[in-house]
């Protein structure tokens, strides 16, 4: 494959429910795997141009995460093609990341990053929602993936949260369509209940075969399954410059969802990736102009409008 970088093999299969014993086992195994990877990297001809990222582990235990990172910091000088850090062990992918409270993720991330030098890139993969992304960005995380827009697409929904600080932006969404939605996922995303505790998840079971995945919805998105889209001739997001919004109505996409056609996730993913990319453009420019907190407040107040 010859990637630009790779993550050293590790046992990061821990989440909020993992026991202390499980976590220390994961660290022990990962340490040995890391050493073997470093050795294998040295000897691999094909990977001479690839750098490797060190996993930052420790499950949901702050002290374990700090301990691991301190140990990593002590060995950094001995690595030749070391490229950066990868934050792991907080979730087991899919919606297990999405439903973690931003405050919890932040404190775990902070305990991993504090002992380490800041001049290396840090990646944190998983379906972090926009507010979680912003918290991690503030802690100096640089690289994220598209798991969140993918999950949103999978449940036939479209991202709709504000992504721009520019108040003149015609992409500023209106909260119209969200008020009627019957199925919502409550997490501590809503700022007024943001207390870092276990999330409360409200699932209203519907006729779908897979009620859990199918019927949750975050406040950052609108469901295209919802009957209210039936005759709406507007795009998902008025003013959005993506291919889907420039060409198709909510009514048509709702129809595709309704008859279970393959084009539905294609059109939704085009919009969701576009929206996600715009979000990161805004994050970068907000950091440059020192307005990251403004962006966060804007998204928080959008959520507050939905969950008054």
């Amino acid at each position: 494959m010859q990637p630009d970088w790779f993550e050293a093999l590790n046992d990061a299969d821990t989440d909020k429910n993992s026991t202390k014993k499980r976590v220390s086992k994961s660290l022990l195994l990962s340490k040995s795997l890391l050493e073997q990877c470093v050795e294998a990297h040295k000897n691999s001809e094909n990977l001479q141009d690839s750098s490797f990222f060190i996993p930052l582990l420790g499950g949901h235990c702050e002290s374990e995460r700090t301990r691991w990172s301190k140990a990593v910091a002590g060995t950094l000088n001995s690595y030749e093609r070391f490229g950066g850090f990868s934050l792991l062990g907080m979730h087991t992918n899919g919606s297990t990341a999405e439903t973690l409270a931003p405050k919890l993720i932040s404190s775990l991330t902070k305990s991993s990053l504090d002992p380490l030098p800041s001049e290396y890139p840090r990646q944190s993969f998983g379906a972090w929602n926009p507010l979680a992304i912003l918290s991690l960005t503030k802690l100096g995380v640089d690289i994220f993936d598209s798991a969140f827009p993918f999950l949103v697409t999978e449940r036939k929904a479209a991202l709709k949260f504000p992504v721009s600080l520019d108040s003149e932006s015609d992409e500023t969404p209106v909260n119209d369509s969200l008020t009627h939605q019957s199925k919502k996922l409550k997490t501590e995303n809503a700022p007024e209940i943001s207390n870092g505790q276990e999330l409360s998840e409200e699932i209203v079971s519907n006729e779908g075969e897979n009620p859990r995945e199918d019927n949750i919805i975050s406040p950052f998105e609108m469901s295209l399954k919802d009957e209210s889209n039936f005759s709406v001739t507007e795009p998902i997001l008025v003013g959005c410059q993506c291919y889907t919004c420039k060409n198709f109505t909510r009514s048509y996409i709702h129809h595709l969802v309704n008859v279970n056609e393959l084009l539905a996730p294609v059109l939704l993913m085009i919009h969701n990736l576009h929206h996600w990319t715009k979000f990161f453009e805004s994050i970068r420019s907000a950091i440059k102009t020192g307005r990251l907190t403004d962006l966060e407040i804007k998204i928080q107040s959008y959520i507050l409008d939905i969950y008054p």
Binding site: Y243, H255, E261, L262, L263, V266
Partner: peptide, 27 residues
Amino acid sequence: TQGTMKGLLPEQVKEANAQIILGNTYH
């Protein structure tokens, strides 16, 4: 059948040189 060509964007159907497509009245 249902107002879409098996996951393809209209552009892709055109690029494949389709001149006309069928829709199913019952569906």
